[in-house]
Amino acid sequence: MGHVGPYEWAPRGHSVEKVAYIHQMLGELRQVAFAEGADMLCYRIEMVYVEAGDIQSGRRPQSFVKRDENKPAGMPV
């Protein structure tokens, strides 16, 4: 993939559409948190929303680390 911003990167098995979907869902979750008066939750969702937007626009790479070394904790969702 060519240069898409200050970083050169290619999503690893993730499409631009999936990141756009995540960004959209975070926006909706932020509205729900705001309506419920959950200020800290709203703030944290906003931080992730901004990061997803940066990834979507190419201003930030999807990851700074190797995926094999930093696996998720396996928390139930």
Rank of each mutant, 00 (worst) to 15 (best):
M1Y: 14
M1E: 11
H3L: 07
G5C: 12
P6S: 08
Y7G: 07
Y7F: 12
E8F: 09
W9C: 00
W9I: 06
P11T: 05
P11N: 01
R12F: 05
G13Q: 06
S15P: 03
V16A: 14
V16G: 08
V16M: 08
E17S: 02
V19H: 01
V19N: 01
A20I: 07
Y21P: 02
I22E: 10
I22Q: 07
I22Y: 10
H23W: 13
H23K: 12
H23L: 09
Q24R: 13
M25K: 14
L26F: 14
L26N: 10
L26D: 06
L26E: 11
G27I: 11
E28W: 13
L29P: 05
R30V: 08
Q31S: 11
V32H: 08
V32Y: 08
A33N: 08
A33R: 08
A33Y: 02
A35N: 13
E36Q: 14
D39G: 04
D39P: 07
D39Q: 13
M40G: 08
L41K: 11
L41V: 09
Y43G: 07
Y43K: 12
R44F: 11
V48N: 04
Y49A: 06
Y49S: 10
E51N: 12
E51H: 06
A52C: 09
A52E: 00
A52G: 01
G53E: 05
G53D: 05
D54C: 15
I55E: 05
S57F: 11
G58W: 09
G58L: 00
G58V: 11
R60S: 13
R60L: 15
R60P: 07
R60K: 15
R60W: 12
R60H: 14
Q62R: 04
Q62Y: 05
S63Y: 02
F64V: 01
V65K: 02
K66W: 01
K66G: 03
R67Q: 00
R67I: 00
R67F: 02
R67P: 01
R67M: 00
R67G: 01
D68E: 05
N70H: 03
N70W: 00
K71H: 00
P72A: 14
G74P: 03
G74Q: 00
M75L: 15
M75N: 03
V77K: 11
V77P: 01
